[in-house]
Simulated scan of single mutants.
Amino acid sequence: MTVLADLLDGNAAHADAFDDRFDDVQDAQHPDAVTVCCSDSRVLQDEMWGNDDPGHVFTASNIGNRVLQRADGDEVVSGDVLYPIAHTGTETAVVVGHTGCGAVTATYDALTGDAGEEPPGITHCIDLLAPHLEPGVEALPEDADRDGAINRLVEYNVDRQVEFLRDSDDVPADVDVFGVVYDFQDVYGGKRGEVHVINANGERDPETLRDEHSDIAERVHRLWTY
């Protein structure tokens, strides 16, 4: 029980700090943004934004920061991402990939024939990602090493998830959809833990992004333009 006891000690400190921060959101929520992040212990969903304000960010996470799921044989926007857009007035969605993503790695290995056996639940997630990443695998530069291939595909996956949201009839056209990568592996050359913008409403060209979004120009970086 040592781990749980440690977690509960941390929660006690959290409850002390947050005791008076729920007054305005006890009965309803109207988050400014929904983020979908990869399920990874190194991806700190609220902390990466410096957020300690309940009700500000609606956080969703899954293997591979997917915005899609299968329902009745079709691919649809995942309910955990769609809920705040459909029901709480949220008009900003952020897809958050991260360097060295295990889900992207597993999908890359599956597509290149190097995958090992996985439990059915993990295989299901890989199967959801694979059709969307396969064209990216085929487009990789021939001289890309394994790490370089994976991190290029991290960007490619974020782009595909942004595209899926923007193409869905369930997501209103006035919802802004951004794609970013959280870097804790020194891949982008900034500080560890920085978020780098790679996509804004489908635009992927870094120079165009900097021109169109001057307020975040210094945070726009891409490893791969394809």
Rank of each mutant, 00 (worst) to 15 (best):
A144L: 05
V81Y: 06
V137T: 05
Y108N: 08
G179W: 13
Y226L: 10
L82D: 05
P131V: 04
I85F: 05
Q29Y: 02
H132W: 01
I63Y: 11
C101G: 09
T123S: 07
H221F: 11
V177P: 11
D215Y: 09
F58M: 03
G55M: 06
T105V: 10
T90L: 06
V3W: 13
F18W: 02
R146H: 14
L140N: 00
C38R: 01
G97D: 11
C101W: 12
P31T: 02
V95N: 08
Y108P: 10
V36L: 00
F18Q: 05
V104Y: 08
R146C: 01
D109R: 15
E194W: 13
T92Y: 07
V36S: 00
C37P: 00
D23C: 01
E155A: 04
R210I: 10
W49S: 07
E212I: 01
D186W: 08
E212C: 02
L44P: 03
A217E: 13
A17M: 05
D40F: 02
G189T: 09
R21P: 03
G79N: 15
V137W: 06
V57Y: 04
K191N: 14
Q69G: 11
F164Y: 14
R192W: 09
H221D: 14
V94F: 13
H132G: 00
G121M: 07
P135C: 02
R70P: 03
H14A: 13
Y188M: 12
D176F: 13
P31Q: 01
I216C: 11
R222M: 07
L111G: 09
F18S: 05
W224D: 12
D174N: 15
G102K: 09
D159R: 15
C37Q: 02
G50M: 04
S61A: 14
E163P: 12
A149Q: 06
G179E: 14
R222I: 10
P54C: 05
N201G: 08
Y108E: 13
Y156E: 10
E138Q: 06
V34F: 00
D176C: 10
R192T: 14
G50Y: 00
D167I: 07
T2W: 06
